[in-house]
């Protein structure tokens, strides 16, 4: 007979673990990853691999030599940060820039706060915004998608994103009717045949992954619904007021980093609120800020900033919006 073990109840445990949750997110990102390889070729593959590898390496080095603590690179969170960081940059980004991004993501946004679970901001987004501000040229020259095994229709190497076309055109005083033909069709938006960061182009692939996340109960409906809902309503109201100046809300939902941000980054467990009501507030805030930046801000895209801003108020939301108590 072995020595009896004594511990407090409960004595059984769910088969869920941090690793399994992280692996679930990684699986969910695979369709979008494949689409990006299809449209952007080996650049996308290389960039993602380097990003993941450098995130894991930085985490390892910091834990081993700076913190001198437990090494946790196998929990999968650094892998996700690496993938999301790569997904948020153009596929022709020089390799050395993404390595800097990985360092900022892991070193500054995650480990400096105490590692997994302690960070206030989504690490991948911090890395992305850091790169956007530091290397604006490289970060905003979007390669034109060149589907594998397809004849090339254009000689252009880089082109603007849909949101970029819109912002620049409206800024130059053109009307929406003039701009519409230049924008990618909805089919291309959904499939991913458009300019943009390598992981954000295909709404369909991202939605397939999101469906998997819901099926595995890794994310709940609160943040995505509140986020998409508030952004949609906001854009719809403006569109109804002046259809010639404000584009239809559907366009906003499937372009830019919206789907990627809503399902994969706003729902990041660590940096989002914990009670259902808090999640709704969080999603609502993200949606409104995103639309404010897209429509009136100087950047064509606002998802990253919106999520980071709401990340900053998450502790307040957690304090202010408690779950419904029993009794």
């Amino acid at each position: 007979m072995s020595t009896l073990i004594i511990s407090g109840s409960p004595h059984i445990h769910t088969d869920q673990s941090v690793q399994k949750i992280m692996m679930g997110v990684i699986y969910a990102l695979i369709p979008a990853f494949l689409v990006s390889i299809y449209f952007f070729g080996l650049d996308a593959l290389l960039l993602t691999v380097v990003s993941v590898a450098s995130c894991m390496l930085f985490e390892y080095l910091i834990q081993k030599y700076l913190i001198k603590g437990e090494i946790t690179i196998t929990d999968g969170s650094a892998v996700i940060t690496g993938i999301l960081l790569a997904f948020n940059v153009p596929s022709n980004l020089p390799i050395w820039i993404i390595i800097i991004g990985a360092f900022v993501s892991i070193g500054i946004a995650k480990m400096a706060f105490g590692g997994l679970g302690k960070n206030i901001f989504n690490p991948a987004l911090v890395g992305r915004v850091f790169l956007l501000l530091s290397f604006p040229v490289q970060m905003t020259s979007w390669p034109v998608p060149r589907p594998l095994f397809m004849p090339q229709l254009t000689d252009a190497v880089t082109g603007p994103t849909a949101l970029g076309i819109l912002k620049e055109g409206l800024g130059a005083g053109k009307s929406l009717e003039e701009l519409l033909p230049q924008l990618p069709t909805y089919v291309n938006d959904l499939m991913g045949n458009q300019g943009g960061s390598l992981g954000e182009v295909s709404a369909i692939a991202l939605l397939i992954g999101a469906a998997y996340l819901f099926y595995k109960k890794i994310i709940t409906w609160h943040i995505p619904v509140a986020y998409l809902g508030s952004a949609f309503i906001f854009a719809a109201i403006l569109h109804l007021i002046n259809p010639s100046l404000y584009i239809t809300p559907f366009f906003h939902l499937i372009t830019g980093g919206m789907i990627l941000g809503v399902f994969y980054m706003a729902t990041d467990m660590v940096s989002s609120p914990m009670s259902p009501r808090g999640m709704l507030i969080f999603g609502f805030g993200c949606g409104i800020i995103t639309m404010l930046i897209r429509i009136w801000g100087s950047y064509p895209e606002g998802v990253s900033f919106a999520i980071l801003l709401m990340n900053a108020v998450t502790p307040l939301i957690n304090r202010g919006f408690k779950p419904a108590r029993f009794g």
Binding site: T72, G117, K118, M269, S271, S275, P276
Partner: peptide
């Protein structure tokens, strides 16, 4: 492991 603030305990 570290708490990842997944809120499963709350739900």
């Amino acid at each position: 492991q570290n708490c990842i603030r997944c809120a499963r305990c709350i739900s």
